[in-house]
């Protein structure tokens, strides 16, 4: 009995701990957002269709660290077998595969009415391919070479877009980002960010606890067409401003500079 009672007490205690407002990182009124957060933070199941093994492994390890489940395969046949057997949240698709064009997989998904999110990763920077891919049901298009941070941000964005409803908030500790209104508040105090700062914050949160190189940040914010890899000074200005605004709103200093390479957005 004592054992049972003890267990009950522990159980009760846990219940209290996990439901009492003081243990929640959010205000009770944010309960809806909490549920939303749960949705966003849930594990993603991904299928990586890429014939280059080295690249596939790196993508897998980079994305897995967040608790996502990644599976990989290197040709069309294996990919269709896997897609027939399992459901995935997101499919990363290389167009140039050894046994055919990746468009066949898009066709397959369309025909079988599967609604996997598809992100095309390809070396072909051809407008025709891009339009064809998007027309055939792909959600986004990423040209090789790309930064893993960029890939992760794109996946997060597609996923958010897919699961968006009227109340679409992204929460990271004391930072709440209203994705529909594009506004940010820290400790329920709204802060005003420029478009670049807002994009940068989203990018950081998508790649939290990861070191992000300056060239990846520059490419994300200014696009890869802008030729300026010899000058990253102005990134620093934007980061400095973002950090100042967050700290001014009593936010913890999450942005850490990693000397020589870039930045890291980390909790600890």
């Amino acid at each position: 009995m004592i054992h049972i009672k003890g267990f009950f007490i522990i159980y009760k205690y846990r219940q209290i701990k996990y439901t009492h407002p003081q243990y929640l990182p959010y205000h009770p009124s944010d309960l809806l957002q909490y549920q939303k957060l749960y949705l966003i933070k849930k594990q993603l199941k991904l299928l990586i269709i890429e014939d280059e093994q080295g690249l596939r492994e790196n993508i897998t390890s980079y994305l897995n660290e967040d608790g996502n489940i990644c599976e990989g395969c290197g040709n069309c046949t294996d990919a269709i077998d896997k897609l027939a057997a399992y459901n995935y949240d997101c499919v990363l698709l290389d167009i140039g595969l050894p046994d055919g064009e990746g468009f066949a997989i898009l066709e397959y998904l369309k025909n079988t009415r599967k609604n996997e999110t598809v992100l095309i990763i390809t070396a072909r920077n051809s407008l025709d391919d891009k339009i064809k891919g998007l027309y055939m049901g792909a959600d986004d298009y990423l040209t090789k070479p790309f930064h893993l941070a960029e890939l992760k941000a794109r996946i997060a964005a597609i996923y958010r877009r897919q699961n968006a409803n009227s109340n679409n908030n992204l929460i990271f500790n004391e930072i709440i980002i209203d994705l529909n209104g594009r506004t940010v508040s820290v400790n329920h105090t709204p802060i005003i960010l420029t478009r670049k700062e807002y994009d940068m914050l989203l990018y950081f949160i998508a790649n939290k606890s990861k070191v992000i190189s300056k060239s990846a940040i520059a490419e994300h914010l200014w696009g890869d067409e802008m030729d300026m890899h010899d000058n990253f000074d102005f990134i620093y200005t934007h980061i400095k401003n973002l950090r100042k605004k967050l700290i001014d709103a009593n936010c913890k200093d999450y942005i850490k500079s990693v000397y020589g390479i870039g930045y890291k957005f980390a909790d600890a």
Partner: peptide, 13 residues
């Protein structure tokens, strides 16, 4: 471009 993508991914890791 594929080898370049591999190098980038390896460096990112």
């Amino acid at each position: 471009l594929t080898p370049l993508a591999v190098i980038t991914a390896k460096l990112d890791t």
